[in-house]
Computed example of a mutant assay.
Amino acid sequence: MKVLFIGDIVGNTGRKAVKTLLPELKSKYNPHIIIANAENAAGGRGVTAAIIKEFADLGVHGFTMGNHTWDNRDIFEWIDDDKRVVRPANFPPGTPGRGMTTIKANGKELVILNLQGRTFLPAIDCPFRTADELLERAGKQSKAILVDFHAEATSEKIAMGWHLDGRASFVVGTHTHVQTNDDTILPNGTGYLTDCGMVGSKEGVLGMERDAVLRKFKTQLPVRFTVCEGKWHFHAVFVEIDDSTGKAVRINKIRIREDEWIMS
Rank of each mutant, 00 (worst) to 15 (best):
L110V: 10
I124C: 01
Q116K: 10
P92I: 08
D125Y: 09
A123Y: 04
F128Y: 13
T101H: 04
R129K: 14
I112V: 13
Q141H: 08
Q141L: 12
L146I: 09
P92M: 04
N90C: 01
N90Q: 11
E136S: 11
E109L: 09
L135E: 12
G107E: 12
A131I: 06
H175C: 01
T154E: 08
A151T: 03
R129N: 15
G166Q: 14
T95R: 03
P96G: 04
G97E: 09
K140I: 11
V147L: 03
V86L: 01
D132V: 14
A168K: 01
P127A: 10
E136W: 15
P92W: 09
A105V: 01
T154M: 08
L164K: 05
E156L: 02
Q141R: 12
K140T: 09
V172S: 15
P127Q: 09
A138R: 05
R87D: 02
A151D: 01
G107N: 01
F170S: 15
R167F: 14
D125W: 09
V172Q: 09
G97K: 01
A159H: 03
F128R: 11
H163W: 11
A153G: 13
R118W: 06
A123K: 14
H163V: 11
F149R: 05
E156K: 07
A151C: 03
D165H: 12
L164F: 13
I103W: 07
P122G: 02
V86A: 03
G161L: 02
N90I: 06
A168H: 04
F149D: 04
K140G: 10
A131Y: 02
A89C: 03
L164P: 13
M100A: 09
E136A: 05
Q116P: 00
E133G: 11
I103M: 04
G161K: 07
K108R: 14
R129M: 14
L113Q: 01
L115F: 00
L113N: 10
